[in-house]
């Protein structure tokens, strides 16, 4: 446990150091580049790009969480039950859409820049959260629900006090999956001129500079691993309260 927290801490410090003062790491990348080419990305601040990247992902995830959880609640209520079989099949079909396709189709509709990326992240992020909200809400123990009804909780009290808290770990797992997918998809967003870390990679690919590709890739990968890890921690705390233990393997 302590060993993994140490690894986490080191990874975080390395990442923070690299995005704030990348020049300090130039010596590591010099062997990879052609003579005369810049070793460190020089067309913008890594820190700013990282923050922009995170902002897009964060906003999109919040938007998809709100809509997906609301939809998940709706189709599990008696009034929305007619939409349940359809919504399940739509989730299955939706997952066969590659995120890049969603991104690509959004561009002609809303133009270049942040907007198509946001739309793609938002739409694609809906699926895992919606699916997990459904799973979480439908696997709430029928006994607990019966007891709640028997004690005179109304539908809203049952939802807020029993169903949502019990479904929380599963919903959180969906949000985590959604964030990780979005981090990657946002990178591809740079092909449609969205601000973010993808810029670094694309610049590297265009100028044939492996060092740039490596820098962009490393920062995104470290971000993803750290966020994945951190959200997993939150989930375990939520699940432990319920006496359920997530698999030891993350």
């Amino acid at each position: 446990m302590t060993a993994t927290s140490l690894v986490r801490l080191i990874a975080f410090l390395l990442l923070a150091a690299f995005i704030t003062m990348p020049q300090g790491f130039a010596f590591l990348f010099e062997p990879l580049i052609a003579p005369g080419a810049p070793a460190i990305y020089n067309q913008g601040s890594l820190l700013v790009l990282t923050l922009q990247h995170l902002r897009t992902v964060c906003l999109a995830t919040i938007a998809s969480t709100v809509l997906a959880v609301a939809l998940g609640i709706f189709v599990t209520r008696p009034s929305g039950a007619e939409f349940l079989p359809l919504s399940r099949s739509l989730v299955n079909i939706g997952q066969t859409f590659p995120p890049i396709a969603v991104l690509a189709i959004a561009v002609p509709l809303v133009g270049f820049g942040e907007k198509p990326t946001f739309i793609a992240l938002f739409l694609y992020g809906l699926l895992p959260i919606f699916e997990n909200t459904l799973t979480g809400l439908t696997q709430v123990s029928p006994l607990a629900l019966e007891a709640a009804r028997g004690m005179g909780m109304n539908a809203r009290q049952r939802l807020v006090q029993v169903e949502l808290p019990l479904a929380l770990p599963v919903i959180l797992a969906g949000i985590r999956l959604s964030v990780i997918i979005s981090l990657g998809t946002a990178t591809i967003g740079s092909t449609v001129a969205a601000k973010g870390l993808g810029e670094v990679i694309i610049a590297g690919l265009q100028s044939n500079n492996i060092a740039f590709v490596l820098q962009g890739g490393l920062v995104v990968a470290l971000l993803a691993v750290l966020i994945h890890d951190g959200l997993g921690l939150v989930e375990r705390v939520a699940a432990r309260k319920l006496g359920r233990f997530l698999n030891e393997v993350p």
């Binding site: 006994l143 607990a144 019966e146 005179g152």
Partner: peptide
Amino acid sequence: PEDELRHRIGYVIQGYGLFPH
């Protein structure tokens, strides 16, 4: 009203349905 009635009547079921959270 239904809910008010149930506040006034205790209810125990097999398996109890304790809230795990």
